[in-house]
């Protein structure tokens, strides 16, 4: 039994039989295709943001609105959450320990909520400083881009809750495992998008 050949990107399941592996492969491939479609959506939001950089319409810009400390905290929260999801994946792959998986999922969820909390706080702060989305084309595109990412994270959090429930109800059977694999891809993918956002939006904005 050669469960060791990596068949699909992302963390492989451990010692799966051939049929499970084929199924997992198909499902994960489909999910990657979805992620790539989502990538197009994000890239066009980025492009829109790029075309709107000069559309301040006399309103406030990045220097007046952004708070580098918030962006930093959000970044750390998200990076840690990606790491903690990795721990959940390890526990799933090697330890077959539903309890540990749930714990790490909870940690991830917590960090995700911290991220969302700071993001909302940041948005409220910006609106308070006179920068609501309706103020200018630039701000519309800012809120659309960062907000879309936030919505994705929200969906990810709901999904984590669902998966905690499923691990509890069904244990770590194949279906639950492949779903966790997909959730992992989703969560890590959102982190990649966030790297784009803090670089292109926050840091670039504070420099430019």
């Amino acid at each position: 039994m050669s469960g060791q050949v990596k068949q699909h990107p992302g963390l492989n399941l451990h010692r799966e039989d051939a049929e499970t592996r084929d199924q997992t492969e198909e499902v994960l491939f489909g999910f990657w295709v979805f992620l790539m479609s989502d990538l197009v959506l994000f890239s066009l939001l980025f492009a829109t943001y790029g075309t709107m950089l000069h559309s301040m319409a006399g309103g406030p810009g990045p220097k007046q609105l952004f708070d580098i400390r918030n962006a930093g905290i959000e970044t750390v929260a998200l990076l840690l959450s990606t790491f903690s999801f990795g721990q959940a994946s390890l526990a799933m792959k090697y330890d077959d320990a539903p309890g540990r998986v749930q714990t790490w999922l909870l940690v991830t969820l917590g960090l995700g909520l911290v991220f969302l909390g700071y993001e909302i706080y940041d948005f409220v702060d910006m609106i308070g400083k006179g920068g609501p989305p309706s103020r200018s084309g630039y701000l519309s595109s800012f809120f659309a881009l960062v907000g879309t990412h936030g919505l994705h994270v929200t969906c990810g959090c709901v999904w984590i809750i669902v998966m905690i429930a499923q691990v509890r109800m069904f244990g770590l059977d194949t279906l639950v495992k492949t779903r966790l694999l997909r959730l992992g891809l989703f969560w890590h993918f959102l982190d990649v998008m966030w790297v784009g956002i803090f670089s292109v939006v926050y840091l670039q904005g504070l420099v430019g």
Binding site: K6, Q7, P9, L11, F29, W32, M36, H188, V192
Partner: peptide, 22 residues
Amino acid sequence: VHFRCFLHIDLSSNHRHDLQLI
């Protein structure tokens, strides 16, 4: 780094499909 360490994408020939896709 994210792709390599978290999403586990590498250049091994076993999953060229997915690399091609990306």
